[in-house]
Design a protein around this nucleic acid. Structure first.
Length: 489
RNA sequence: GGCGCCGUGGCCAAGUGGUUUAAGGCAGAGGUCUGCAAAACCUCCAUCACCGGUUCGAAUCCGGUCGGCGCCUCCA
């Protein structure tokens, strides 16, 4: 089998994946800070790693996937103050929202979903070790990590302290040993959640939680740490510093970072108010269309999301996602044809065997090469064509069954084609009909009228009905003596 | 100021030295099929921002120019 190579931010090249323990793989992905609903950018990360885990498992790895929930942080506190709720309540609300979005997107639950607030003790232990070793120092109830006390500081992000100093444009806290020292522990202010610690009541800093939870569940030197590009510095850099400072051994073998979603070429971000929530996109497209859209670009590249709006500013559609949805419709249509052909055809499986095997190999090879899902989607399209060709040529039986098998495997990796053609078609159709305010019964009635006209060979009347429905966006497809219909858009 | 990324057909997007004189999708043109259509399938449609260099050979490596973006502050 082909070796799996993944671009490692630490080494800046595609490293061959060699796990700490053969056959097992520990993956840690920075999860959401639950102070607001998740946007498309979150969907990108979690769909990516969901698919990666599916792939690794298909390759025989026993994967332990840890994705934390940051349920204590400045923004949660701020939100709680604004709404008058407790931090716990705010976190609870958005955990629920996040889970609903992930479930809709068919993102499987990680093996372990630890919460920061349930691991404060573990964080305190790491901080204590660092304080004892002199790489961290208490200061008026806070505890700071001393970046100068850790030799490798900057190795992930490719910076050194001098460069950082030169570019520092944040207000310098003169109490610190170095302006880049970061808080491991923060003394709590009145009204804020607080935990007891050797340095007084307080709460953890942002970075320490990921060190504590990844090390607890995966141990030192675990295999892959993932997250968005923006976490490289300072978040992951600091995780490495504090973890390795406390352990005296390597923290993680490989760092994997995904690119952003942009809107009008600018990073989609809360601060720019140009973000789209997952739930907003779901109003306009099937979840599998969103997955295909996200996986249609290599994970390290940016995705520029296009949006069309009505003059009043309401979202009309996300063209790329709509396009992906049409592709998904085509996939299901092809699957439907194959199923039918498999049931009543009798062709030799060898008719498609070669295409099926090379398709599987190519998907595998693409994913082995820095998880290139975009290239794999290209191969999927090629194979869909071959499958339709098979059916067009009257092939079926074992050949069609074989095609369905390899497609199912690919669908499982991407988390698409997880429904049946009938169920999928119905769900898409119902959504579109609701928007058009037409019922299926009304359409069926017109189709029945057209059938009568066709039986009389009254082509003019039949075509009038076709045109009438077409004007509404209903497309008719005659196949023998039955007429199927679809809704455009 | 420092670190880094990107610029491929009308649009989206793979490809990081020859097997790709550039996958796949959308749009477009022609065709098969069809009462007409649709769907499906077939055919056609780019020399890779620009300049210079390295090489037998570069979209792919090096240098420069122009243009876009990210990180250095919470951020997927």
């Amino acid at each position: 089998m082909t070796e799996i190579r993944i671009y490692n931010t630490l080494t800046r090249k595609r490293d061959v994946l060699e796990t700490r323990t053969a056959g097992k793989l520990g993956l840690y992905v920075c999860g959401p800070t639950v102070y607001d609903h998740a946007h498309l950018g979150h969907a990108r990360v979690y769909v990516l790693f969901d698919s990666l885990v599916r792939f690794l498992e298909s390759r025989g790895y026993e994967v332990t996937y840890v994705r934390n929930i940051t349920d204590i942080d400045n923004k949660i506190i701020k939100r709680a103050q604004e709404t008058g709720e407790t931090c716990e309540r705010v976190a609870g609300t958005f955990i629920e929202s996040f889970n609903a979005d992930m479930e809709a997107l068919n993102v499987r639950r990680p093996t372990i979903e630890p919460r920061a607030t349930e691991h404060v003790q573990e964080m305190i232990e790491i901080i204590s070790k660092l304080v004892d070793a002199g790489t961290a120092y208490p200061l008026e109830g806070d505890v700071y990590f001393s970046v100068e006390g850790f030799e490798g500081y900057g190795k992930l992000s490719g910076r050194n302290l001098d460069q950082l100093m030169a570019g520092a444009r944040v207000e310098v806290d003169t109490r610190l040993r170095s302006p880049h020292d970061f808080a491991l522990w923060k003394a709590s202010r009145p009204g804020e959640p607080s935990w007891d610690s050797p340095w007084g009541p307080g709460r953890p800093g942002w970075h320490i939680e990921c060190s504590a939870m990844s090390l607890k569940y995966l141990g030192a030197g675990f295999d892959i740490h993932g997250g968005g590009l923006d976490l490289i510095f300072p978040h992951h850099e600091n995780e490495i510093a504090q973890s390795e400072g406390a352990l005296g051994e390597p923290f993680c073998r490989l760092f994997m970072h995904n690119g952003f979603i942009n809107v009008n070429r600018e990073k989609m971000a809360k601060s720019k108010a140009n973000f789209f929530l997952i739930s907003q996109i779901l109003e306009h497209a099937h979840p599998e269309a969103i997955r295909l859209f996200l996986l249609g670009t290599h994970y390290r590249g940016p995705i520029d999301l296009l949006v069309t709006m009505d003059p009043d500013g309401t979202i009309r559609e996300f063209p790329q996602v709509s396009e992906a949805q049409k592709r998904i419709e085509y996939y299901y249509e092809t699957i439907g044809r194959l199923e039918k052909a498999a049931a009543d055809g009798s062709a030799d499986a060898s008719l498609i065997t070669k295409a099926a095997e090379s398709f599987s190999d190519r998907v595998d090879a693409s994913l082995c090469d820095d998880f290139n899902t975009a290239r794999a989607v290209g191969h999927l399209n090629d194979f869909m064509k071959a499958a339709n060709e098979l059916v067009d040529g009257g092939g079926g039986g074992a050949a069609a069954a074989r095609a369905l098998e390899v497609l199912a495997r690919c669908g499982d990796l991407f988390g698409i084609m997880q429904s049946t053609p009938e169920a999928f078609t119905r769900s898409v159709r119902d959504r579109k009909l609701a928007a058009l305010r037409i019922t299926a019964e009304q359409i069926e009635a017109r189709i029945a009228a057209r059938r009568e006209a066709r039986e009389r060979k009254d082509w003019a009347s039949a075509d009038a009905i076709r045109d009438e429905l077409a004007a509404l966006g209903i497309e008719l497809r005659d196949a023998g003596d039955t007429t199927r219909w679809t809704v455009r858009g």
